[in-house]
Amino acid sequence: MVQEHDPPVDPVYKSSLRELKWIFVIWLLHFVWVVGYCCAFGYPPPESELITVLGMPSWVFWGVFVPWISATLISTWFALTQIQDHELPDSLPAALATRSDTQTESGT
């Protein structure tokens, strides 16, 4: 579909797509960590001994609390350093936009 003389790819689209892929990776990483750890250690057999860390069950600490901190730190790092800034276009005045819509539809 892309042709030789087409204008370059929109930079906002390009960077947003790259960021989207990384967001999926970050989500997947925490999905595996939380669900994996909690499934392995958070479903103990009845009557097993309760181990706590900082007052919470250890499966909550290592399977939810620590990954939650990790996710917050990674989200912060990602938002501050990896999401690219762009100049977003100004909105058209409403009347102009309506006119241009009408023209487009009548033209197609």
């Binding site: 970050i26 989500w27 996710a71 917050t72 989200s75």
Partner: peptide
């Protein structure tokens, strides 16, 4: 727990 990644 998924709220940890929800804002992002």
């Amino acid at each position: 727990a998924a709220y940890m990644v929800m804002p992002l």
